[in-house]
Structure formats: structure tokens, C-alpha cells
Design a protein around this nucleic acid. Structure first.
Length: 112
DNA sequence: TATTTGACGATTT
DNA sequence: CAAATCGCCAAAT
């Protein structure tokens, strides 16, 4: 099981309506490099195998984006899943945090 | 085995 | 507020 595989596993566990950051996913996957996460996800681009569209950067913003028909596509998907976008291309911090704190956090989780 | 590179992150200019 | 810079770490070649 390579790190990449674990990354997929983690991302695949991101609940609907929520997003995680590369850094968080990385740590959850047991690595200290967010970059590896992105690289691993890049291989997926389609979003079929893994819901990579639920992964955003530390600023809660969607990646430069190339899959999902561009950033707009990804954003649209997330919105449909319940993720709130205050500003175009930027998910609310409310949507973040889930695997970030190793499990469920009451703060925002219940707020959804 | 070594080198390159990168869907990032944090900081600074 | 946006762009540039440096740092980190592991995967891919």
C-alpha cells in the first residue's frame, strides 16, 4: 500500500457536503507532504475513482483545476453536495474540517 | 540509486 | 491584495 493509495482511501472517505485540504488529507494519510496528495490526485482527474473535487487547498479554494470542466465545474459539484461558496472559487471554512481533526468535530460539523 | 518535480503551505515583498 | 520565494517530502522517471 503506497502513500498514494492511502490518499485515495482518505479522499474517498470525505463525507458528502464537505471538503478537506491537501494538508489535512496528507496528514491523515500519514505523510507530511501536501504536494504528494495533489500529485496523487492529479492522476485521477476524472473524479470517478476518487472524489478529488472535495479536496481544496489550505485557503479553502479549489485547485487551479483542470478536471471537472474547470474550477467552475468543481465548484458546481461541491455546491450541489452542499458545500457553501461565499466567494467564487472559495469554499467556506464551514465546509472544511472533518478529517482535519481526526474524526468528528462538533464546531462546524453540526452546523451543516 | 540519484535527480527532478509538483492539484501545496507559509511568509515576505 | 497579488506575485514571488523558500521550504518540505515523497512519488515518478
Amino acid at each position: 500500500m503506497t502513500v498514494t493509495q492511502r490518499i485515495y482511501a482518505v479522499v474517498a472517505r470525505i463525507p458528502r457536503g464537505r471538503v478537506a485540504t491537501y494538508g489535512d488529507v496528507a496528514r491523515r494519510a500519514g505523510i507530511r507532504s501536501p504536494r504528494v496528495v495533489g500529485n496523487a490526485l492529479h492522476k485521477n482527474t476524472d473524479g470517478k475513482a476518487v472524489p478529488c473535487h472535495r479536496v481544496v487547498n489550505a485557503q479553502g479554494r479549489v485547485a487551479p483545476a483542470f478536471a471537472f470542466g474547470g474550477p467552475k465545474g468543481q465548484e458546481a459539484l461541491l455546491r450541489k453536495e452542499g458545500v457553501i461558496f461565499t466567494r467564487p472559487g472559495t469554499a467556506t471554512r464551514l465546509a472544511l474540517v472533518d478529517l482535519a481533526h481526526s474524526g468528528s468535530r462538533s464546531t462546524i460539523s453540526s452546523n451543516l
